[in-house]
Write a protein that binds this DNA or RNA. Sequence first.
DNA 1: GTAGGGTTAG
Length: 877
Amino acid sequence: MLMVAKSSPNLFWASPPYRDSKSDTVKIPNGCIFFKPSSRTSLLSSNSGCSCAITGTSALLAEPTSCDIIDYNAKIIKFCEMGNLKNATELLSWSQKSELELKTYCSILELCAEHKSLADGRKVHSVICANGVETAGYLGAKLVFMYVNCGDLREARRVFDKISNEKVFLWNLMINEYAKIRNFREGIDLFNKMQELGVQPNSYTFSSVMKCFATLGSGKAGENIHGYLYKLGFGSYNTVANSLVALYFKSRRVESARKVFDELSDRDVISWNSMISGYASNGLAEKGIQIFIEMLGLGIYMDLATMVNVLVACVDIGTLRLGRSLHAHAIKACFAGEIKFCNTLLDMYSKCGDLHGAIQVFEKMGDRSVVSWTSMMAGYVREGLSDEAIRLFHEMERNRVSPDIFTITSILHACACSGSLENGKEIHDYIRKNSMDSNLFVCNALMDMYAKCRSMEDAHLVFYNMPVKDIIAWNTMIGGYSKNNLPNEALKLFAEMQQKSKPDRVTVACVLPACASLAALGKGQEIHGHILRNGYFTDRYVVNALVDMYVKCGVLVLAQLLFDMIPVKDLISWTVMVAGYGMHGFGSEAISAFDEMRDAGIEPDEVSFISILYACSHSGLVDEGWRLFNIMRNECKIEPKLEHYSCMVDLLSRTGNLSKAYKFIKTMPIKPDATIWGSLLCGCRIYHDVELAEKVAERVFELEPENTGYYVLLANIYAEAEKWEEVMKLRQRIGRKGLKKNPGCSWIVIKGKVNIFVAGDSSHPQGGKIESLLKRLRARMKEEGFNPKIRYALINADDMEKEVAVCGHSEKLAMAFGILSSSPGQVIRVTKNLRVCGDCHEMAKFMSKISGREIVLRDSNRFHHFKDGNCSCRGFW
DNA sequence: GTAGGGTTAG
């Protein structure tokens, strides 16, 4: 496609001089810079040089003597022409009111605008006010111009509202400025107001006001204005048509944009560029590239913006090939020295996955702007090299380039990705010192950084102080709470949000994990309704989170139903379902799903292997477990992590392969943690291997000396073997350490209310009824020969005493309450924060049999479905 | 008309 360019390089690829609208200079590709001819520069060039101007300055500022007749006006205007704002304002302040002419004020205001010096502009304004000069007419317009240029739109508007406004120029200026600061409503209001006042809009007015309509995304308004400006005869102005093209593209009316372009007889390079960028920003980058080829074929003069637009389109298509050839041609055409081009090129390489290409562009750049540094940092973060991004940020500071809002958000993102709270706080200090803390982007990036660095208190502080909270702010906080294991806070904030703002699909994807974590089925179903009403079901984040919610709320059937409805299942969908089957004890279904996923051509990753190995372990599938572990290593080339080893040890231990598990741990290439040894210790208890248990326990105690659970576990192993002396020794050992216990708690939702129980707690209003029900059940169990397996609850963490038959564990209390408070036929769903106790597990089986009720108990490890006296876990827990 | 930034699922 670039053949055309090659055949006529001068026409297509030569770098034209172009105007830099910001600095009012004309840049010539070889690097020379010429000032745009103006009254000021013509004055300098008419003098014999700068030195003359300097001597002129001192003569002009010399103290006036009484015999001089000073024409202050002429002197001030001369300073203005020379660009010496300081001397001009100084002289103005020395002058008498009566001496000053209107044109003098005007000149100095123009210079303030040019220098963007708000401080000087305000001084001049106060002199004008003090002198009582009339500002209703021409001078007022200059004041507005000055304030707009110096960035004080509020003051500009104040003056603007006071003066007579028949000049369309000022209206255009104001409308355009409102468009720039994205206050589109105000821009449109002004447009309507000017028409009420009978001021005729011109082509510039339409260009400006269309920016407002465009970003409001109002396609209808676009059509109206389109008809209106045709009626007024502006349809053939290509500036107007170009704005119209942009307006239609921004309101996603691609066809309308194309029609305006097709009907435009006098297309300039801007028309073509608008088409390329318009297509690209509407996800139709290929069409943009087609326009570019058409442009080349017609021999249209191409400028820097064309190159930039095409590179952006390349990023969208994600192909490096075209980007690379544009790079090659840019070198020939002398674009390669242009900073805007290089920045886009750098970003193209980085976004197309060629970080090395991006680095090369960055290193070859002679001039680097803040954009270059920021893009490079973002590139490093994209590749997971956050520390490198942080290093680059410090290098940028050493090069005295000041970070802007974009840099700050990028570097915060780097801190978030590397979990570096310390660096993040440093950036927060910078933000405060430089008054950037009211910017929405910055605040959102700050909250995200704090959330990812696990400091939700800091995130909340930022959130709380935000003057305006957009939907991203709410989502960031809700998602932050969910991810930091604060599901109650997430749900609370979600409720608050619903009062103030409308949740979107991201909100839903953020809040569902909180429902999953709490097993809050009712709330999850409510959100499911919201998803259906708003058509979010097609969003892969939403649907995956929804399936996961049903899995973790214990409704596997619904999860499976929804999973089957996902048209294109991705890795996450499959992983959720595999893990779901696993935690509900359907090991072979998990394996089938996993194989099906691979058949569908989806490569499993680390996390999906954790899910499948976990599924094997919870169904005791030793051979399958080994097979999959080897597939992971040999076929998928995934190096097993601690979690994978942990699943395997768990699998071997639960199935009684204790010495194999021990050997497996011994040959692990990475250091086993307490969880891994702990799994084996659990296995020792199930299979009563006291000797191995002692060996293993010492390892666990070394690794986690403060964890009570492991001492209790060993004590129970001794107790079951009736080694009371050892139990005593262990008790003394624990007594010396003064261990803390992790309190067990269970909860159940009845009629939308969460009822929380802790072990031994009788404070529940129904406490008495619960206790007598449990007593009756216990008695019936004995009668029917359902022997309570007291050995499960021999030793209690609280007192290390042999426990009496009635154990007051929280899950038992919750299940009993469930039976008492729900109608027959209803499934009883209980969630526990720790693993279920063995005695409670036996009792639950009996409860399900005697009451004819289905009980679904989720513990910290898996699900137990109790029905007709059996449990789905078949002993693997 | 043109380069860089913030939120989502296992």
